[in-house]
């Protein structure tokens, strides 16, 4: 291993400190005995206990999870379909316009997306609740999915689909049996992206949620306005733990499948 020069050591330390000090402080204070967030009064896990009994938070967590699962799934289906047509549909009238327009929500300020959705829901008389948040999240995360999936489809060898047709598949079968399995990693990462976007969205959810359904980010945000409580710290620590575990598992799984593929290839090379 190379030793880092003093300059590199300092840059690295500074960078990571900048990223992680706020989170570390938050985690430490979630184990604080005292109700005052800034004064350390000894180690305790009592805030975690209280969290379990706090129905409002649990409800919000449940709503958030439901919204994330539904909206990311719908967004993945719609986004994949849109990507497929835009990449594969050949030259149809207005193709350039459509492919430009699908990226527009990426750069649109969230406040505007939220406001326009709110106006739409009021206009068609839809009561705000879980359904409206799901719809809203689907709307804005769909374009992220289609960006991820279409960048994979562009490099996809078209003759594979032709071979499937040639061997007797209908176009739908060719998609299901050949295209989808091959682009699956892109579809899955599209889903994960949509899921995380939905989990941490505050702006659009606050426009489209109603009294019957509040998501966790909204709940935390409004709780913090009344003052930071150790309970919030505990909740945030749990979220950090979940995300960390998720990221580590995902990278382990991909690493393992890469190792397995490599081992297969070496075995194949030896057998020649």
């Amino acid at each position: 291993m190379n030793r880092l020069s003093w300059f590199n050591t300092v840059s690295l330390t500074l960078g990571f400190a900048f990223l992680y000090i706020p989170m570390i402080i938050l985690i430490i204070f979630s184990f604080n005995e005292s109700k005052l967030v800034t004064v350390w009064a000894g180690f305790s896990t009592k805030w975690y206990g209280e969290l379990i009994n706090n129905e409002a938070f649990l409800n919000a967590a449940w709503v958030t999870l439901k919204v994330a699962v539904f909206s990311s799934t719908i967004a993945t289906v719609l986004g994949t379909m849109a990507a497929y047509v835009l990449v594969r549909g050949g030259r149809f009238l207005g193709r350039t316009l459509f492919s430009g327009m699908i990226y527009a929500p990426l750069v649109m300020p969230e406040v505007i997306t939220g406001l326009s959705l709110l106006l739409l829901f009021i206009g068609i008389g839809l009561d705000r609740g879980v359904l409206t948040i799901v719809l809203a999240h689907t709307t804005f995360s769909m374009c992220y999915v289609s960006v991820v999936v279409s960048s994979r489809l562009v490099t996809f060898d078209r003759s594979l689909e032709e071979a499937a047709l040639d061997l007797g598949c209908s176009p739908a079968q060719a998609f299901r049996l050949v295209t989808l399995p091959i682009i699956a990693p892109a579809v899955i990462s599209g889903w994960l992206l949509a899921f995380t976007l939905s989990l941490d969205d505050l702006v659009i959810a606050s426009f489209t949620s109603g009294p019957s359904a509040t998501t966790l980010p909204i709940k935390i945000f409004s709780a913090v306005r009344l003052g930071v409580s150790p309970e919030i710290n505990a909740l945030s620590t749990i979220m950090i733990a979940i995300v960390t575990i998720g990221v580590i598992t995902a990278s382990l799984v991909t690493k393992q499948s890469r190792v397995r593929a490599q081992r297969d290839e070496q075995a194949a090379a030896r057998a020649q």
Partner: peptide, 8 residues
């Protein structure tokens, strides 16, 4: 196919 087009 000239490019074989095997399903990977």
């Amino acid at each position: 196919f000239q490019s074989y087009a095997l399903f990977p």
